[in-house]
Design a binder for these strands. Structure first.
Lengths: 339, 339
DNA sequence: CACTATGCTGCAAACGTTGTCATCCACACC
DNA sequence: GGTGTGGATGACAACGTTTGCAGCATAGTG
């Protein structure tokens, strides 16, 4: 192993100078700096991370905590965060808490000291997590807490765009199929819907559904019963489940009901019909989180913009909007459709 | 910060005893051990990772290198690897090389020294990677190299199962839509198909397609032209693309053509028709890779089994198998369908 | 010329842990 | 009772880096 001592000997300087030449180049004379660098390159010197951490306290690594790495949403965030960390010459510890609040807190106690900061993505137990982290830099993604920097999505703008789109198509009664109550994004979306309400549009917000395919299946019949001609769902998976259940009931999307998803995860373009959805640049979110971790001034960045991606799941309502469907004796058709 | 010294003072022993009591409990007398543990708990002592690494050389962290973290395949492997690492009390550095061989090699030089070993998943430049890693423990996933432990998938068994299934349904001419030439999995699958061939079944292997939706779209017309009544694809995304293109041509799946995907990524169950596919337990793969990293005897584990998941994309061939379709003037219907 | 200011470099002390070696004590055996 | 044995513990030296402090030029100023 090549150490500072070897480089120092080769360059004819002291180890202090070597350390400085590489870490604080402007604190050493140009010609010395060059000699040291040449020697370091020559010998293939790589500073020992552990020694550096021990002495200086900086680890050169960040942590990313997500509830489920297999979820394409978090995978995309992780990808962005990883890329940004690498660009900064840092590593990224990725931890999957398996949606388990206890594990989240536990894992943080061992993770935190090994990092220069942690990105908490959709935390399931923020209070405990923040307590564990103490003074260490944290950035929240998809969550809010006093005085903690966060990367936020402009959910209100997203809802506004979706509503505008559906209204322009002629829809006047629009349902929202919401996600888990604990979800900050869900709360923001509901608030956004309320704020964006048009005089001539009714918004029916339906309550907590699981943010997976099953959630959409469970919500479908409620949506039909609500009399809405269009629906916005918590995420694309919910939209997929919803569409599946609607079709099983003989309803057509977008003929009988228009559907707007959220996230533009890549399933949105694969299913039939391809989903109109709200796109968030998740990788940018990951990148922004890491950047915020470094910018220790604790300033929260501007919320990330949300774009509407129009595909085939939205269309004008049929002349007699969903009347036939709502008139049908829905209950008898709903085995296992308990919301 | 609480150090061994603090614990030692509190327990009335020397720092050596503290270190031993926690790291090698059987080398210290039971009552002393308990006293030390009590003191450590009391003070909330957490060994400093950096100091430990510096002195002992073991980092307590592993590395995982994947070409694309946003790909659900790799995300699943990462999830498994992460879980196993955590169970071992270790961290996991996840690195996304963005399918870039140069980046792969570069990233390894800085990653390797910070870990106790690296899992290389679907490496894009194995030789360089192995050169960089030198003597450090490595495990390959989806790849083979002399003397390097690897986690393998029993692709031959998978192909055999798919063939059996299709043959039992009555198919006698079956196409395989292959992935990139550089893919080890693709080579194994082709070999498996050749080995499993039945006397009464023709297998038509079609050449390199991109392992994404577009690859399937590109392959569709070749498959139809081949006269096959069933097709096995490199992965589920290819299957999705294939199905989409077939339907655009007015063909029915599974009516005119049965389709078997690979990987059972979660899109398989979401698309219409739901895909019959070969399931590999990707999380188990990730876990196995980390385990292998630790088992320094370098023994490669038994190949992972592959299960057939039967859904709606496979059915018996129609009496006049795809005759109408092949007879149709396909070219005129294929704008932009260049394979 | 003396004195100060400035810039560069070297010395040496940490950082907190692990592991080697030596010490010590108790016990058993001769 | 002396000696050997072995288990338990303590003292201390690393591991490789960073950094405060001091030293030493050189240059600038009175």
């Amino acid at each position: 192993m090549v150490t500072v001592h070897d480089v120092a000997r080769a360059a004819g300087v002291s180890i202090s100078t070597v350390s400085r030449a590489l870490a604080a180049p402007d604190r050493v004379a140009p010609h010395t700096r060059e000699r040291v660098r040449a020697a370091a390159d020559e010998l293939g010197y790589r500073p020992n991370r552990a020694a550096s951490v021990l002495r200086a306290g900086r680890t050169g690594a960040y942590g990313l905590v997500v509830p489920d790495l297999a979820n394409p949403y978090f995978a995309a965030v992780a990808k962005g965060a990883q890329a940004r960390a690498r660009e900064r010459g840092a590593g990224l510890f990725v931890v999957d808490t398996e949606e388990n609040p206890d594990l989240e807190a536990e894992v943080l106690t061992s993770l935190a000291p090994q990092t220069d900061g942690v990105v908490l993505c959709s935390p399931r137990a923020v209070d405990r997590a923040l307590a564990v982290l103490g003074e260490r830099p944290v950035v929240l993604v998809n969550h809010e807490a006093d005085g903690v920097p966060a990367v936020e999505t402009d959910h209100a703008a997203g809802m506004r765009r979706a509503l505008e789109h559906l209204r322009a198509l002629g829809h006047r009664r629009i349902a929202y199929v919401g996600g888990p109550e604990s979800s900050w994004s869900d709360r923001r979306r509901r608030a956004g819907l309320a704020a964006a309400a048009y005089d001539d549009v009714d918004v029916v917000a339906l309550g907590a559904f699981r943010p997976q395919v099953e959630g959409g299946q469970a919500a479908a019949d409620l949506v039909v019963a609500s009399g809405a001609t269009a629906v916005i769902t918590f995420n694309d998976l919910v939209a997929v489940g919803l569409v599946g259940r609607l079709r099983a009931r003989g309803l057509d999307v977008p003929g009988d009901l228009s559907v707007v998803g959220c996230d533009d995860s890549y399933v949105a373009s694969l299913v039939t019909p391809a989903l109109t959805t709200l796109r968030v640049d998740l990788r940018a979110m990951g990148r922004a989180a890491v950047d915020l971790l470094v910018a220790d001034d604790g300033v929260t960045a501007a919320p990330l913009d949300v774009d509407l991606v129009v595909r085939s799941s939205t269309a004008p309502p049929t002349p007699a909007p969903a009347a036939a469907a709502t008139a049908a004796p829905t209950e008898t058709l709903v085995p296992g459709g308990t919301p």
